[in-house]
Structure formats: structure tokens, C-alpha cells
């Protein structure tokens, strides 16, 4: 998902006998759905895993502004442009809510940003794909934000208070993103044959990367069990992926678009869609930095951070000067 393959630093789920009294009390609170708050005692591995997970999620929101920002100047109408700007601004806000949640765990904002720029922490694989046409903007809202909602709604119930509250805020805003995407797709699919073909081409390119967003199959997700025990992961990768497919295929049918998977078929006995094998090699390549846009995304982020340095410093200098002046006048 926005946070993929988060390392818990724990090889195997601990059972009660291996836990200290403090850890047992902590786990009992989690089991009883009592929220863990910043000043509460928590196992170091829980804290570290959450920092990684929330940080990855925050970076994804911020890096996710880039593929969409690419089309702000070229949106087909003023209305679409205003909507896209509002959406991209929301993503910036989502990043901020999440950074703030991570900071409650004792890491500084600058450290989080530096970790991203140093390549120590990832962001979602999905943002390493290019936005080649306007239909990609529709598809991102429809599929990528749709997948994000699927993952984030359960996280509203996660065990860590600040993360859960950030998720609730984000989910409230996210459904606008998905709808604006579907609205773009509807307009294209009701348009000329060329526009419809553009919509189909975007779906062809984004479908599989969207399914990869949920992360590796459960059998290969070594850290999921511990994260589930801590209630910072509430549904498994495969469960979420299946829900996403079940929800999205009828939407594609409505649009008159073909999902690019010859194996896709409704299975009446399971009540779900069966779908084809995912190319996990591509996923791992993208995570390793070999996706189509990894280098470009990081270059853009680092440049924005470096170019903005003088503004951050000037703002501090201005605040200091004003405070000094106020102190002199008071004296």
C-alpha cells in the first residue's frame, strides 16, 4: 500500500511467555482496543515499526503530488485545473498530518525528510510510474486513490491514537479524490473514440501497478503477522487486493473499459473475481529504484527541499528579529 513491506525488526510474533510484564500489559491494551498515545509506554519495536510505516505513508503523499502536478498546467479546462490543484493541495495536507503523527513518536520532521532523500525510507511503488496523458490523472484518482481508501479505512481503527486520527481526517477528504478521478474517466468514456482509447490505454498501464500497491502476497509478507498483532495492519495484503478487484471491476464495466487481465473472471462459488498472476519481479525492481521514474521523483524532491532552504532560513531569521524587537520595546 502507501506503506509497503514495513520491516517490524521482529523475526517472529512474540508469544506471551517471551514478553516482559510491560509488553504483556501493552498487548492487553491493544487487544482491548484501547488506543496507545504518544506518552504511553510502548515496545521499542512497535515504535520503530510505526515510525517506518507512517513515514513511508507520509512520503507517498508528498511524492504522490509529483505525477499529478505534472498535469496542472495542462488540464483540459479551468474547472479541471482548479479541481486538480485542490486535490494536489489535499495530498500535501495528508503528508503533513502523517508527518505530525510520526513526530509524536520522537523523530524530527527534518530527520524524516532526510531519510527519504538519503534513500533510507521508501514511498509507494505506484508513484514511480509516469503520467503520460490526461487519462492518467483520471485513472490515478479512480484506481490509486481507490486502493488507498481501501487500505486507509481499516487503519482508522489502528492501535496508535495519532495515526488513527490522521487516517480519519484523510479518509474524509479522500473520497473526493476518487470521485474526481472517476468523473474524468466518465467524461473520456462518453467522449470521442480517441478519448475512450486514451482511457483504455491508461487503465492498461495502471491496472497491474495498482494491484501491486497492496504489497506482496500474504505468504511472503514476513512482517504482517506482528503488525497485525499490534493492530497497525488490520487486513492482509491479499484480502485488501481482492476487495479492490471486486469493487473496481464493475466500475470498469460501467465505463465500458476492459481490465487488462485475460484470467479475470467472476467466480460464483467464492463470490469474488479470480484474477491473473501479478509480476512481482516488476514490483521488486520498482522498489529497488529501477522503476520508470524513481530517479526523477527523488531528484525533484531533493531539488525542492534544497531550493526552499533559503525561505525556511529567512522565515526563522524574520521571526527571531521580530521577537527581539518586541523584547526591546517591552524593556
Amino acid at each position: 500500500m502507501y506503506a509497503q513491506m514495513v520491516d517490524t525488526g521482529v523475526a517472529k510474533v512474540q508469544d506471551a511467555a517471551q514478553m516482559s510484564a510491560e509488553e504483556q500489559a501493552f498487548q492487553a491494551r491493544v487487544d482491548a482496543d484501547v488506543k496507545i498515545e504518544p506518552k504511553d509506554w510502548m515496545p521499542e519495536a512497535y515504535r520503530r515499526t510505526l515510525v517506518r510505516q507512517i513515514q513511508q505513508h507520509a512520503h507517498s503523499e508528498i511524492v504522490g503530488m509529483l505525477p499529478e502536478g505534472n498535469w496542472i498546467t495542462r488540464a483540459p479546462t479551468l474547472k479541471r485545473k482548479a479541481i486538480l490543484m485542490a486535490k494536489v493541495q489535499d495530498e500535501g495536507g495528508h503528508g503533513l498530518y502523517l508527518y505530525a503523527a510520526a513526530e509524536t513518536l520522537g523523530v524530527s520532521r527534518d530527520q524524516l525528510v532526510e531519510d527519504l532523500h538519503a534513500g533510507k525510507v521508501k514511498y509507494s511503488s505506484i508513484f514511480n510510474y509516469p503520467t503520460l496523458t490526461w487519462a492518467d490523472i483520471g485513472t490515478i484518482g479512480w484506481l490509486v486513490d481507490g486502493a488507498a481508501i481501501m487500505n486507509q479505512i481499516p487503519l482508522c481503527r489502528c492501535s496508535y491514537g495519532p495515526y488513527s486520527r490522521a487516517m480519519i481526517r484523510i479518509c474524509k477528504e479522500e473520497s473526493f479524490h476518487q470521485r474526481q478521478g472517476f468523473d474524468i474517466m466518465m467524461a473520456l468514456c462518453k467522449g470521442t473514440a480517441e478519448q475512450k482509447a486514451m482511457a483504455q490505454d491508461a487503465l492498461d498501464r495502471w491496472w497491474w501497478p495498482s494491484l501491486m500497491m497492496f504489497g506482496p502476497p500474504d505468504a511472503q509478507s514476513v512482517h504482517s503477522a506482528q503488525s497485525a498483532r499490534w493492530k497497525i495492519k488490520l487486513l492482509s495484503n491479499d484480502e485488501l487486493r481482492q476487495r479492490f478487484v471486486d469493487q473496481t471491476v464493475p466500475q470498469a464495466d460501467y465505463l465500458g473499459l476492459r481490465v487488462p487481465d485475460p484470467a479475470l473472471e467472476w467466480n460464483a462459488s467464492t463470490g469474488h473475481y479470480d484474477f491473473g498472476a501479478i509480476d512481482w519481479d516488476e514490483f521488486h525492481q520498482v522498489l529497488k529504484g529501477n522503476g520508470p521514474c524513481n530517479k526523477d521523483r527523488m531528484r525533484t524532491r531533493i531539488k525542492a527541499w534544497d531550493d526552499g532552504r533559503w525561505v525556511r532560513e529567512a522565515a526563522v531569521a524574520c521571526a527571531d528579529k521580530r521577537a527581539a524587537r518586541a523584547a526591546r520595546q517591552a524593556a
Binding site: G93, Y97, A100, A319
Partner: peptide, 20 residues
């Protein structure tokens, strides 16, 4: 209480809060 943010001074904090 709705959340938190970084800002150099109170005036900028209010402006940013308004935007976010």
C-alpha cells in the same frame, strides 16, 4: 484540537493552519 504543524512564528502558524 485538530492537529499540529511547524511554523517559524505565530502569524505563519495561523496562515498555515488556515491552509491545512
Amino acid at each position: 484540537h485538530v492537529g499540529s504543524l511547524h511554523a517559524p512564528d505565530a502569524e505563519m502558524a495561523i496562515r498555515n493552519a488556515r491552509d491545512v
